[in-house]
Simulated assay, not measured.
Amino acid sequence: MSGPETFDRVLMTSAVVFVVVAGALLLFRISRGPSMLDRAIALDVFAAVVIAGLGAKSAFARDSFYFPIMLVLAFLGFTGSVGIARFIAVRDKPLSRRRAGGKEGQR
Rank of each mutant, 00 (worst) to 15 (best):
Ser2Phe: 09
Ser2Lys: 07
Gly3His: 12
Glu5Thr: 05
Glu5Ala: 14
Thr6Pro: 00
Thr6Trp: 01
Phe7Cys: 04
Phe7Ser: 06
Asp8Met: 08
Asp8Pro: 00
Asp8Tyr: 01
Asp8Ala: 08
Val10Gln: 07
Val10Lys: 04
Val10Ile: 13
Met12Ala: 04
Met12Val: 04
Ser14Pro: 00
Val19Trp: 00
Val19His: 01
Val19Arg: 02
Val20Asn: 00
Val21Gly: 02
Val21Ala: 14
Val21Thr: 07
Ala22Pro: 01
Ala22Leu: 06
Gly23His: 00
Ala24Val: 15
Ala24Lys: 02
Leu25Gln: 06
Leu25Ile: 01
Leu25Phe: 10
Leu26Arg: 02
Leu26Gly: 02
Leu26Gln: 03
Leu26Lys: 03
Leu26Ser: 02
Leu27Asp: 02
Phe28Ala: 05
Arg29Phe: 00
Arg29Ile: 03
Arg29Glu: 03
Ile30Ser: 01
Ile30Gln: 04
Arg32Gln: 11
Ser35Arg: 14
Met36Ile: 07
Met36Ala: 14
Met36Glu: 15
Leu37Val: 10
Leu37Met: 06
Asp38Phe: 08
Arg39Ile: 14
Ala40Lys: 03
Ile41Leu: 15
Ile41Lys: 08
Ile41Trp: 03
Ile41Gln: 04
Leu43Thr: 08
Leu43Ala: 11
Leu43Val: 11
Asp44Gln: 11
Val45Met: 12
Val45Cys: 10
Ala48Glu: 12
Val49Pro: 05
Val49Thr: 13
Val50His: 02
Ala52Cys: 09
Gly55Asn: 04
Gly55Asp: 03
Ala56Cys: 14
Ala56Arg: 05
Ala56Leu: 03
Lys57Asp: 04
Lys57Ser: 08
Phe60Gln: 10
Ala61Leu: 14
Arg62Ala: 15
Asp63Lys: 10
Ser64Trp: 06
Ser64Lys: 04
Ser64Thr: 12
Phe65Gln: 10
Tyr66Phe: 15
Phe67Thr: 10
Ile69Asp: 02
Ile69Ala: 13
Met70Ile: 14
Val72Phe: 11
Val72Lys: 06
Val72Trp: 01
Leu73Gly: 11
Leu73Ala: 13
Phe75Met: 13
Leu76Gly: 00
Leu76Ile: 13
Leu76Ala: 13
Phe78Gly: 03
Ser81Cys: 07
Val82Tyr: 09
Gly83His: 08
Gly83Lys: 07
Ile84Trp: 07
Ile84Gly: 05
Ile84Met: 15
Ala85Gln: 05
Ala85Met: 09
Ala85Leu: 08
Arg86His: 07
Arg86Glu: 11
Ala89Met: 04
Val90Trp: 06
Asp92Phe: 11
Lys93Gln: 15
Lys93His: 02
Lys93Phe: 05
Pro94Cys: 01
Pro94Ala: 10
Leu95Ile: 11
Ser96Lys: 09
Arg97Asp: 14
Arg98Lys: 15
Arg98Gly: 06
Arg98Asp: 10
Arg99Trp: 09
Ala100Cys: 00
Ala100Trp: 02
Ala100Tyr: 05
Ala100Phe: 08
Gly102Pro: 04
Lys103Ser: 03
Lys103Ala: 12
Gly105Trp: 03
Gln106Trp: 08
